[in-house]
């Protein structure tokens, strides 16, 4: 136990933990919303995130020439990358809903079947990205797209394109990208929270979550509502993917797996089905892991995260904010 180091560097450890936690939270949103409406754990959501990271990477690659970009041009490229990331993730989420879930839900299949379908879809999507050189090879495009599809199973990196300076706050050096990630994630959470609370569509989502049949009788179109839920989850995963690429700069076809598991844990920690719970769970998990890594050793960070999850669930089986589970879902 390295208490000296821990207490001397507590602010930095907390900020970097919050930054990663914010990314968990944004991904956790997708898990929690779909669960709220469908009581289904969408295990393919990690792949929705992964496609967003590649959309960001490819947009940045395509638009920055060999000389790189700077100033306003770079900001423009990044904004476009954010939009592309959100659109790609949303598209994947909608396709998932249409192909992997809707046919099952229509036939009233047990939830377990949908869960297996989700796991299957997750593998298909991940391997499709991991074998993208072969896929493009079939249509004879692999040479033209070599930069994008080559090295399909190793890391792809946009390192060195975005260089954000460190800032000094009260004598502590903090990475500005971490602050940006936290701020952006919080802003997105507020937007989604308000949207679900105040808009007509949001009311529909909440109504469907409480009782799908009654909601349908009141004129809420369940299919459309479920679609909206997937859409919002996908858009948020796209934001998470963009922020992840700003911070880590490197992605790979299987990057979604670990992050997906963590984000799912964050959703459960906060109380699955509860939007604010996802935020709280994500931030808490991120900070706890980072503190654990600093105190005990980095190899223990995943252990710390899941021990925390188990301990909290022992005392609060429905998660931190999970009291309302079954009542005001989503």
């Amino acid at each position: 136990m390295d208490f000296d180091f821990f207490f001397n560097n507590l602010p930095q450890l907390t900020i970097t933990g919050l930054a990663f936690g914010a990314i968990y939270a944004l991904i956790a949103l997708g898990y929690t919303m779909v669960y709220g409406v469908l009581q289904l754990i969408n295990f393919a959501h990690s792949e929705v995130f992964m496609y967003g990271t590649f959309a960001t990477l490819w947009t940045v690659w395509a638009l920055t020439g060999s000389g790189g970009a700077s100033g306003l041009q770079l900001v423009g490229i990044l904004l476009l990358a954010l939009v592309m990331s959100m659109l790609s993730s949303a598209l994947i989420a909608l396709v998932l809903e249409r192909v992997a879930y809707r046919p099952l839900i229509k036939k009233n299949a047990p939830r377990l079947i949908a869960l297996i379908s989700a796991i299957g879809a997750s593998f298909v999507l991940a391997e499709l990205m991991g074998l993208r050189d072969r896929v493009t090879g079939w249509v004879g495009l692999d040479d033209d797209l070599d930069r994008y599809v080559g090295g399909a199973r190793i890391n792809a990196s946009m390192s060195g394109i975005v260089n954000m300076p460190n800032v000094e706050i009260a004598g502590i050096s903090i990475k500005s990208v971490d602050l940006l990630v936290i701020a952006a994630a919080l802003a997105m959470m507020v937007v989604v929270d308000q949207f679900v609370r105040r808009s007509k569509l949001g009311r529909g989502i909440r109504a469907t979550a409480q009782d799908q049949e009654t909601a349908a009788l009141m004129g809420v179109n369940p299919t459309r509502t479920i679609q909206m839920t997937f859409l919002i989850g996908g858009l948020m995963a796209g934001v998470a993917a963009f922020l992840y690429m700003l911070k880590i700069e490197v992605t790979k076809f299987d990057v979604g797996f670990l992050l997906g598991v963590k984000a799912f844990a964050a959703a459960v920690l906060g109380g699955i089905g509860n939007l604010r719970g996802a935020l709280l769970g994500g931030l808490l998990l991120g900070v706890a892991e980072n503190w654990g890594a600093a105190l005990i050793g980095t190899e223990w960070r995943h252990v710390v995260a899941f021990v925390l999850l188990v301990v909290i669930l022992l005392f609060r089986p429905t998660g931190l904010l999970g009291e309302s589970l079954g009542k005001a879902r989503a």
């Binding site: 001397n8 560097n9 970097t16 911070k247 880590i248 990057v255 670990l258 600093a294 960070r301």
Partner: peptide, 19 residues
């Protein structure tokens, strides 16, 4: 310090090194 193969966030390790 020991990291895990497959991880992507090494903030805690980086902080240890700079400290």
């Amino acid at each position: 310090d020991t990291i895990q193969a497959g991880d992507t966030d090494f903030s805690a390790t980086a902080q240890k090194v700079s400290a």
